[in-house]
Simulated scan of single mutants.
Amino acid sequence: MIKIDSQRLINISDYYYQEIHSTVIDKYSRAALGNNPFTGNDLRLWFVNSTGQLDMRFLKTLLTGTIDEIIKTNIEIEYYLKTCKFLHYSSEQVDAKLTGMKKVTNRIAIRQAYVAKFSNPWLDKYTKAPGNLSFFSSNKNYNKLVREVKADMLDLNVLLAQMIDYEYISKELRHELLHRIGIEVCPYCNRQYITSYIDHSEKKSTADLDHYYPNSRFKLFSLSLHNFVPACQICNSRFKLAKGIEILDPYRDGFDRDTYFEVGLNPASNSDSLIGGNTFFNIELHQMHTGNRADQLEGNIRLFQLENVYQSHKEYVRELLYKQYVYKDAYKKDLTALFDNMQLTEQEIHLFLYGHALQDDKLGDRPLSKLAYDIITRT
């Protein structure tokens, strides 16, 4: 929901590399990587330079670069990412669109469009195989295609796990990373503090270090710094898990103004509902985008159950509405004079009134900042 400044990761990239790269080098030296099941080529070719030695520049990019930077190092890594995405999102995206759809022609088109979205030579090897040429014609044929691709991806990820696996990060390093990244509010829900603290000289955190691309399915990126998202345990362990729902990458995008909270009236509502007199209303979450970004926005809302869990904050919204009503009307003159005497900035006034500065670039600083921002600025 809330965009994270990727500079936070850049600032700690050298530290992280120094802490983890020797472990990866040691695992690589012991690994029996074998051949890539998708191409038959020696998998070590991904990791070596022209002299046949482990490519340290590539290793640093893999550990500390963005996902885009990583896939630019080798076209086969781009194929890997696309094929992993095809498998990860397959059931959620295809099944969701097929639900309730009766026309066979539309169902065929959906399967074809989904596969085309992730088309690459690895995937083409299966879609163009004689036994899969009609993969789009039925769920049975489509699921057969998915199973075949999945079997080889599982084998490939087992090979990669010999040198790249989240298990190689110690508990101490995980907590250190959470301290250094410095995120204090869960970016997925904007509801929970994720607190870092010291316990008997040991750094600890209430946060989980989530993988945007799940460790179990995108093994190559399981130690990539830009794949780590500090998150509350509810979002990570209760909602997200490894569900194949496409969501926003918080280092790239947030909800911003494409998605907004709004007070929605229901049959029990009355005039007092709009001025903080009661909680006879619903908290609605709307998104105004189209295309792939719309799918990701809807994915966030659905995966983290945002519209449902935010209903528990009606009393908080009622207080915001009441404060806004009072400031605009009965006490506006007196409050304005008070603020002038105190020489407060607009942001300080908002903090005084609502507990939030109402700055769209500060929504990650406090829980419920996005909710407060939308309710106050859009009402």
Rank of each mutant, 00 (worst) to 15 (best):
D249V: 14
N215I: 02
E346D: 02
D208L: 10
L351D: 05
V229L: 09
P187A: 14
N106T: 06
G34I: 12
E167Q: 12
I375V: 10
T99M: 15
F339S: 09
S29K: 13
K333P: 07
C189T: 08
L159P: 00
H211M: 08
S269D: 04
I10H: 15
L225R: 12
T61C: 14
R147P: 03
N266P: 00
V229C: 08
L220H: 08
V24A: 06
K144R: 00
P214F: 11
V263T: 07
D360P: 01
R8H: 07
N36R: 12
T377V: 10
L145A: 01
R180Q: 12
Y322C: 15
L223K: 03
R57C: 05
K82Q: 12
Q311N: 05
C189E: 13
N157G: 01
G244E: 02
R238P: 01
G355A: 07
K219E: 13
Q311R: 06
D55Q: 00
L285W: 01
L225V: 10
P367G: 06
C186K: 05
N300A: 13
T206L: 06
I349A: 03
D199V: 02
H350M: 02
T127A: 00
T290G: 07
Y15Q: 10
T345H: 00
N278I: 07
Q311V: 05
L154N: 15
Y79D: 03
R318Q: 10
E246Y: 14
R252W: 05
F239N: 09
L81I: 12
A242M: 03
E184K: 13
L178Y: 11
Q18R: 07
T51S: 14
R217I: 15
K219N: 15
S6F: 06
L156H: 10
T105R: 09
K333Q: 15
D155C: 10
A337N: 15
I75T: 07
S205Q: 03
K204G: 10
F304C: 10
A242T: 11
Y331I: 12
E148Q: 13
G291I: 08
L9M: 14
L62I: 03
D249S: 11
F228R: 12
D374Q: 06
E262G: 07
K219H: 11
F86E: 04
C235I: 07
Y28E: 00
E78F: 15
G52R: 09
S170V: 09
D210A: 08
D361Q: 11
V48F: 01
G182M: 01
K82C: 03
A357E: 08
H286L: 04
N11Y: 09
V104H: 00
I12W: 00
